[in-house]
């Protein structure tokens, strides 16, 4: 690739001298726009995290002081631990559900299109609407769950008033929103597997569990990687769902790093420390994505090349 050689020759339009620049003219406008805005924001955020701001947004350079303050802040430490457990539980539950849905959407014959179409619906519901809907499922008076409990003659529960239950509900709402996309990705992987492999395994007397772990799972490894990236990206950056569901409460039981970041910057107007949390979110998400890419995409490529 030493020269800029178009794979397709342009017609004799007389613009021959421009030709080497054509791909750049096509590719760069979008990229420059994206990098201009998002790159500017990331760099601006890092600079902001090194400054102290007052109420009028006057900045003074303070070096790493914000980082030291934030990392020593017990409220941040609690939010960080909470976020990690939120992410881990969401990933485990989310991948389990996505895999179950994908397998069942693969197996179902009658109404296949309907079930697939239906399964993706939550992906198109906004985070705020998801949160509002889950509030009315679990709200104490008039919630779906308590109405059902009342019909069964059971006492009502304060689902969103109890710290542990509220945390669980937040995870459920998060899963409701993120599982559909992940399960369709996994379904795509399962569909590409040659059916003969299953038949051969069945003839050899393998049971469904063995078939899943020995055949299905290894063959959809790249798709599993993609859905893992999606699930952990969504869980790490969950913000609107939790903000509208619980606002971080009760008793800060659902205050994740993203919620605390919003609180610090927009309620307490401490933009310097808010920017530190932005950097934390950014670093964690990037590291996690790189690990997944290394394990699932790169590892798989090397494996298949070695197998040739």
């Amino acid at each position: 690739m030493s020269h800029t050689t178009p794979m397709v020759e342009d017609g004799p339009t007389g613009a021959d001298r421009l030709k080497p620049f054509v791909p750049y003219l096509l590719v760069l406008p979008g990229l420059l726009f994206v990098m201009g805005v998002l790159g500017y924001a990331v760099v601006g955020g890092i600079i902001l995290s090194l400054n102290e701001t007052d109420m009028f947004m006057n900045k003074t350079f303070v070096g790493l002081k914000n980082y030291i303050d934030v990392f020593a802040d017990p409220r941040f430490q609690a939010a960080m631990l909470r976020t990690l457990s939120f992410v881990v539980i969401s990933i485990v539950l989310g991948i389990f559900m996505s895999m179950s849905f994908a397998l069942v959407l693969y197996k179902v014959v009658r109404g296949r299109r309907f079930f697939r179409g239906l399964s993706l619906v939550p992906y198109f519901v906004s985070g705020i609407a998801t949160a509002v809907m889950f509030r009315f499922i679990f709200t104490t008076s008039g919630g779906f769950v308590n109405t059902v409990l009342a019909q069964l003659g059971l006492p009502a529960q304060s689902w969103l008033g109890d710290p542990t239950l509220a945390f669980v509900v937040a995870i459920m709402a998060n899963c409701w929103f993120m599982v559909p996309f992940a399960s369709l990705i996994l379904l795509g992987g399962i569909q590409t597997i040659d059916k003969d492999l299953y038949d051969a395994a069945a003839i050899d007397g393998a049971n469904p569990i063995q078939i899943f772990f020995r055949i299905t799972l290894p063959l959809i490894k790249p798709m599993l990687g993609v859905s893992l990236i999606w699930v952990s990206y969504i869980s790490f950056s969950t913000f609107d769902i939790v903000l509208a569901l619980t606002s971080g409460g009760p008793l800060k039981a659902t205050e994740l790093v993203s919620i605390y970041m919003y609180e610090l910057a927009f309620r307490q107007l401490n933009f310097g420390q808010g920017a530190v949390l932005m950097v934390v979110l950014l670093v964690f998400n990037t590291v996690l994505s790189l690990i997944y890419i290394k394990i699932f995409v790169m590892g798989d490529r090397r494996h298949s090349e070695a197998g040739k």
Partner: peptide
């Protein structure tokens, strides 16, 4: 470079974007 923006949590950008 086109892929990188997709792994940036968008909510994290609200602090610097508001400032800028």
């Amino acid at each position: 470079l086109y892929l990188i923006p997709r792994i940036i949590p968008r909510v994290s950008l609200i602090v610097p974007l508001n400032d800028l």
